[in-house]
Amino acid sequence: MVGLSEGEKHFIRGGIAQDLRSDGRKRLQFRSISVETGVIPQANGSARVRLGATDVIASIKAELGKPSILRPDKGKVSIFVDCSPTAAPMFEGRGGEELSNDLSVALQRCLLGGTSGAGAGIDLSSLIIVDGKVCWDLYIDGLVISSDGNLLDALAAAIKVALSNTGIPKVSVLGASSDEQPDVDVSDEEFLQFDTSGVPVIVTLTKVGRHYIVDATSEEESQMSSAISVSVNRRGQICGLTKRGGAGLDPSVVLDMISVANSVSQQLITVLDSEIAAAEASEE
């Protein structure tokens, strides 16, 4: 991964302790975010998010499917992440698989709520067309193009932007017979926008020494003892939580980190909103 000498590691740790990181940021400051929408024409919605040198693409593809028997009134959403070998040589072949799986699982936990589908950031019942018969299956694919730390936050931001860029075709049900599969007509012209106000953002706090930082670069991540990713929605509610890294955390520290993440996330949402508006304006 990143090779750093003792002197450089010491310098990075010192910077975090003194609240002045290597690129001049404070501990709770993000790198500049830039957002582009509609980057994949075939997809229903897509977005590219750059966070410093981290570069990710998210695309949303909607397909008609059958809801699961356990939850006949809800649509299905699945999230996959792929790490491109262009990001780092170690992602070549099957090298990126472990990281890809970790990221997909973390994103599912943070965005899709529990196994029952309750508490999901994406409103699953809005994906249903005919109860128990037809629903939309959303396939969310993330691609890591360039990796310089904080992939999870960038991917979550990209998914949020892509969802706000997504248009789902309007569907009208033709034959509404009760037992067999109903006929549906998918409109080519009319699209429905998603309600993305409930989609959370993820803020990862990386603990280095006694302090924690947001938006760590890969050099800083190499010095972390543990990291907590908190997903927070617009109303400041915690939607999900995952922890990485071997070192344990005191419960009081965890609570403190969550409250910090909560306040940072509100700034991030504001920045993302203005970036989304700018990206959509430039697209038109």
Partner: peptide, 14 residues
């Protein structure tokens, strides 16, 4: 650790 004043200069030059 590097003194804060020097660190500021290092970051600015960098």
């Amino acid at each position: 650790f590097t003194p804060l004043e020097t660190r500021k200069h290092i970051c600015r030059i960098a």
